[in-house]
């Protein structure tokens, strides 16, 4: 029920996202164009099919990827503060991507955007391996993981700043705009890549839904039920690095979705992972879709970087939600 409601809300949010933008588009024109492409003139067709729709779908897919990544990460690290951007996975992916942009790395036979995505994934996976090693050595206890993740964020941010410091002015401008998080580079090709990563990751995650739910009892308890905790954590974190890497590579830094999505899903659906995992993906998609709409409509005629909008609008809403819930319990 709640999942269906979330899906409906997401659909409406995507429609709203498509409607907003520098050029006005009436709902009737939009629907007519969507149902019957080309019926409302070539300009409307181009706006809808080449600009608005890929951007809106991209926002939803990236939100879903980050929401799912955050949910899996919070469960396997047993930490409600875990998300790709709070524990340095996002920063690592950013570093990998920055290096490609700055050094103008070209891999033979691979277009630049793919090279960026690939390097983002490699760096994200390395940071994930480090987190996994720490989790295995010290147990997934809250403090150690969070401290390590925070240390990782600071180190990587410093290295990122260093990379920007030595960058040429041209590359720097590209980098800065990109670290603010932007959906303006959306294309059907990129949509297809993110969609395929999601299509691969979500079913694998869902197959482990029972084991992930059992893991909520605690690591020792899950082991005693026969759950292979170490392998479960490693494969889940691998999915997280894949999801975070494509998100970062194509839209830059959009923090907090990976934190907010799972929390919203947990408040609405609880932690039975059969519902919690898809719920987190849907909630992430919904939040980023709304943020994208806001970024296009807050300042008339100007599209703000969506990463900035997500943080400025999303965080207060999230805090209100969380604190309201806590008070209700107390």
């Amino acid at each position: 029920m709640i999942l269906a409601a979330l899906s409906l809300a997401l659909l409406l949010a995507i429609l709203g996202d498509i409607m907003t933008g520098p050029a006005d588009l009436a709902l009737s024109d939009l629907l007519g164009e969507l149902i019957n492409p080309g019926s409302h003139g070539p300009i409307n067709e181009a706006i809808v099919w080449q600009i608005r729709l890929p951007t809106a779908v991209m926002a939803a897919l990236v939100g879903a990827a980050l929401g799912l990544a955050g949910a899996e990460m919070q469960t396997v690290l047993n930490n409600a503060l875990a998300s790709p951007f709070t524990l340095g996975v996002g920063a690592a992916a950013t570093l990998g991507a920055s290096l490609v942009i700055i050094l103008d790395v070209a891999l033979p036979g691979l277009p630049p955007s793919y090279t960026i995505a690939l390097m983002a994934f490699v760096f994200a996976a390395l940071s994930i391996l480090a987190i996994d090693a720490v989790a295995s050595l010290y147990g997934a206890s809250r403090e150690v993981i969070v401290l390590f993740g925070i240390a990782l964020v600071f180190v990587l941010n410093a290295v990122n700043a260093l990379v920007q410091f030595v960058a040429s002015p041209d590359a720097l401008q590209q980098l800065v705009f990109w670290t603010m998080g932007s959906l303006s580079e959306a294309s059907w090709e990129r949509v297809a890549i993110i969609a395929s990563v999601l299509v691969v990751c979500l079913p694998f995650a869902m197959r482990r839904a029972w084991a992930l739910t059992a893991l909520r009892a605690g690591e020792d308890h899950a082991r005693s039920f026969g759950v292979p905790v170490t392998r479960l954590r490693r494969t889940a974190l691998l999915r997280v690095s894949l999801l975070a890497a494509v998100a970062v590579a194509f839209v830059g830094t959009i923090g907090f979705i990976g934190l907010v999505g799972p929390h919203m899903a947990r408040l609405a659906l609880g932690e039975d992972h059969r519902f919690y995992l898809p719920g987190s993906a849907l909630a992430g998609a919904l939040v980023l879709s709304l943020a994208a709409t806001a970024s296009e409509s807050l300042v008339p005629g100007l599209v703000l970087p969506v990463g900035i909008v997500t943080s400025l609008i999303g965080i207060p809403c999230f805090l209100a939600l969380l604190l309201g819930q806590r008070r209700g319990q107390g």
């Binding site: 047993n78 029972w210 084991a211 739910t213 059992a214 893991l215 909520r216 009892a217 605690g218 020792d220 308890h221 899950a222 005693s224 039920f225 026969g226 759950v227 947990r266 609880g270 932690e271 039975d272």
Partner: peptide, 25 residues
């Protein structure tokens, strides 16, 4: 095997917690 530590206080309801222990493996 029941470890000495208690199951964590999560937002799962008791029924879900026990069902997941049954289905996990």
């Amino acid at each position: 095997y029941l470890p000495q530590t208690l199951p964590q206080p999560t937002s799962l309801v008791a029924y879900e917690a026990v069902a997941s222990a049954c289905r996990a493996a």
